[in-house]
Amino acid sequence: MTTTKAPTIAPPVPLHADEEPHVTTKRAPKMRAKDISVFYGDKQALKDVSIEIHDDRVTAFIGPSGCGKSTFLRCLNRMNDTIPSARVAGRIELDGEDINAPAMDVVQLRARVGMVFQKPNPFPKSIYENVAYGPRIHGLTASRTELDETVEKSLKRAGLWDEVKDRLNESGTALSGGQQQRLCIARAIAVDPEVILMDEPCSALDPIATARIEELIHELRGRYAIAIVTHNMQQAARVSQRTAFFHLGELVEYGKTSDMFTNPREQRTQDYITGRYG
């Protein structure tokens, strides 16, 4: 379907970062991906993608379904290692260190680079255990009360606390889809990672929960480097300072969110943002 309406570009809502004084482009990026190509068997899913992710800003990944956003995100914490047919070429650095080097401990890498998956995947354990699991296996808390505090804080930040505080011992899989996704967010931030990768965290959420997650992203910005995949242009415009547009496995355009949404360099970006295809 084509819309004949004049392209209404998503409102350039208050643009935070780059105008703020503490943001400096000169700082070294938290993560740097260089010429990343990913193959599933013989099929190439990503072609020479290079992106930098900074810890004082949010980077949004947008693009039509199947263009490789999740695939790229999963490269950043080596989640693609778990897919036997997947092969990743290129260099990815975390704080200047090659994450694919033999010296890199993949277990620690995944603790430092946390992930919220596209499909909610809570453990079939209690709500409490879901959130407590990460801190427990890494030995982040010294006592039970400290662990309780971490669980409560994480659930509050994910906007789930009020709904579950009286039933922390119930199974996490008994929650609704949106609640499960917030539980997964709480689980990811409970280990206090340095980078958080969120793959469409709000796709199953109502507007209120979505607003809560966006608030959380604002709150976490500056402490963590955040990368978020979203199909919602308004959301990308609201939460991010950098946007990357993917199309058919290629990184078409990457730049300041404000520029992307008001004045994209590429025709394909313009078409996607204004809803001509996707």
Binding site: V107, R110, A111, F117, N121, F123, G134, I137, R187
Partner: peptide, 15 residues
């Protein structure tokens, strides 16, 4: 056992 459970655990840094 669904792979998503394994991914979830690996994702928080389980060995």
């Amino acid at each position: 056992v669904p792979p998503s459970i394994r991914e979830a655990a690996l994702g928080v840094g389980a060995s």
